[in-house]
Amino acid sequence: MSGNTVWNAGWSTSVQRPSTGFDENWAEEGFADQTVRQVVRVTGSGTAARVRLSNRFGDAPLEVRGAALARTDRGAAVQDGSTRRLTFAGAGSVRIPAGGEVWSDAAEVSVAPFEKLTVSLYFARPTGPATFHAQAFTTAYRAAGDQSAAADAAVFTETTVSWYFLADVELSGGPARQDTVVTFGDSITDGFASTADADHRYPDALAERLADAGLGRPVLNAGIGGNLLLNDAPWYGERAGARFRRDVLDQPGVRTVIILVGLNDIGFSEADEAEFPTFRPNPELSAAEIIDGYRDLIEQAHAAGVRIVGGTIMPFRGAEYHTPDAEAKRREINAWVRTSGAFDAVADFAAALADPSDPEVLRAAYDSGDHKHPGDAGYRAMAAAVDLASL
């Protein structure tokens, strides 16, 4: 393809430094003479695709000896005849410097919104700890040796629910889009407690709702479980303000961002340190400080010509870090989000998911069981709470 190819958003995730997580993952051990096969669902369409691989948090160069792209069949299986070897500046392998990233060349593949693509990466030499996305809620598969073009899914005998080194899929084959929506935030945006491999996160439901309304457009998920607005965290990614440009504003054709972040900034300082040792850093922050963090995101978005929708923080009484002080901060922040006029629009998730008889509690039908994260029905209710005209 020519250098004039137009690339539109297809799929994206926010990368993190290697760490342990809520589920077992392979990030800290990395890979050696192994193939990792990963599945993503795109919300755009095209006739060709390229992938971005990230070694942002690697402490040594990363060698990818082989890579392939295919249309997904089921699980680790791919559709017959759809596998395309990926190249990088014409070569079948690539070396990515520590802290760097690389785009593959274009691979011809026809894909429609809500179809799935499979990306397989072979690492011949030890990678060291892996840049990854911890809470994918999508199964990744591992096999010994070079199985990047394997047709037999049975060779992939190990699984986790994280993504490794894979950061973006972009699609070409149509005019440039200027209507991408990015959802940005913490575990509630990431989709914690949603059904694995079912694409039932709220951004997924929002993309489907837009399509059903005849307003189909790319919707990207830039959530990181545990993410903080104001502080970097070893387990939960760079602070929202620091990653906002890379994960939101640098996406192709971005028009609107919906933010939902701040719950962990409120709650980490309230949790028992012995019981929740990963809730770090955990300084006590005022509502005013968190609101100032929102103002920074708003300023960044507007400077880039991007609309920004503020999401209200949902009820969480009964969760591990709910206290009267935390509840007071949530109410103060939500009142500001609703009434300040600082955002271009508001998505009142709190009102949509609260128990009508007790606004400090998630409605039981929407609660995943931890009194903080919605389940699948709750994520659908969140998507329904977004005014499509605001996008």
Rank of each mutant, 00 (worst) to 15 (best):
I266W: 11
F123R: 01
D348H: 11
L69R: 10
S357A: 15
A240I: 00
K116I: 00
D73V: 05
A384G: 01
A345I: 01
M1G: 12
I96K: 00
V40M: 11
Y236N: 15
A383H: 11
A345W: 06
A381M: 15
L285S: 05
D23W: 13
G311W: 01
A222P: 02
M314I: 14
D190Q: 12
A350L: 05
R307D: 03
Y202N: 03
F192H: 13
A76E: 08
T13K: 03
S2K: 08
P97F: 01
N4L: 08
S162R: 10
L229I: 07
E101L: 06
L391M: 11
D190A: 13
V161L: 14
I259T: 15
G262E: 08
G369I: 15
V78C: 11
Y379G: 03
G293T: 04
F31Q: 10
F276A: 09
F57P: 04
A91T: 12
D179P: 09
F268I: 07
L86Y: 14
T127H: 11
D376P: 14
R56A: 09
L62C: 06
G10M: 09
L69M: 11
G375S: 08
E299F: 01
E24P: 14
L206E: 01
F349P: 01
N55I: 02
L388E: 09
G90C: 12
P218M: 04
H200K: 12
G226V: 04
L215T: 05
G310W: 07
